[in-house]
Computed example of a mutant assay.
Amino acid sequence: MLFETHTPATPPTADPLAATPTWMTVMDRAGRTCECTGACGSRHGRSGLRCDTRHGQYLKGHRGPVRLAVGQPDLTDREAAALPPADLRAWCPACWRGTDRRRRAARAALAAHRDTADTADTLF
């Protein structure tokens, strides 16, 4: 056939190959929906102040279904892996990137402030 319909290789709600009990617990608690409530910088105004992106959902601008991750953007992977499921949250890629970007900007601003304070102390 010249024009075949494209079907995804995996069903849109497929769990990752490494779906651990922790991942499953967090996803079940979150209803397979991103748990961001604005840490990414968005007010999520359309969905009652919580991101409404669901695991397996197709969104405009994405090549395939959205896959939610479990973690805490302000922690390293190693630190997050040591936490119990109750302390972890489900994140869509856009909210994770937004939260990480804001965290990095805050760290950079703090470092710049420290550098400025150090320079001011040495001037006098």
Rank of each mutant, 00 (worst) to 15 (best):
M1F: 13
M1T: 14
L2G: 11
L2I: 10
F3W: 06
F3N: 07
T5I: 12
H6Q: 10
H6I: 13
T7D: 02
T7N: 02
P8H: 05
P8R: 04
P8E: 06
P8M: 02
T10E: 12
T10A: 11
T10S: 13
P12H: 07
A14D: 13
D15L: 15
D15H: 06
P16C: 00
P16G: 00
A18S: 12
T20S: 15
T20L: 04
T22S: 03
T22A: 06
W23L: 07
M24E: 12
T25W: 01
T25P: 00
M27I: 11
D28K: 09
R29Y: 08
R32P: 01
R32S: 09
C36R: 07
G38A: 10
A39S: 14
C40L: 08
S42Y: 08
S42A: 15
R43N: 13
R43C: 10
G45K: 03
G45T: 12
R46P: 02
G48E: 01
G48C: 02
R50I: 10
R50Y: 07
R50S: 06
C51E: 09
D52Y: 02
D52N: 15
T53S: 04
T53N: 02
H55R: 08
G56N: 11
Q57C: 07
Q57R: 03
Y58L: 11
Y58W: 10
L59P: 03
L59G: 08
K60S: 15
R63D: 11
R63A: 14
G64P: 05
R67K: 09
R67I: 09
L68A: 05
L68D: 11
V70T: 13
G71W: 00
P73A: 03
D74K: 08
L75K: 11
T76L: 06
T76I: 08
D77E: 14
A80W: 00
A80D: 04
A82Q: 12
A82F: 01
L83S: 08
P84L: 05
P84D: 14
P85H: 01
L88E: 04
R89K: 14
P93I: 09
W96A: 11
R97I: 09
G98Q: 05
G98L: 02
T99L: 01
T99K: 02
T99P: 00
T99Y: 01
R103A: 03
A105N: 03
A105K: 10
A106G: 01
A108L: 14
L110R: 13
L110G: 08
A111K: 05
A111E: 15
A111C: 03
A112C: 04
A112Y: 00
H113I: 05
H113D: 11
H113K: 06
H113G: 13
R114T: 10
D115N: 06
D115E: 13
T116D: 07
T116S: 14
T116Y: 04
T119V: 04
T119N: 05
T122D: 11
T122Q: 13
T122M: 06
L123Q: 12
L123I: 15
L123E: 15
F124I: 07
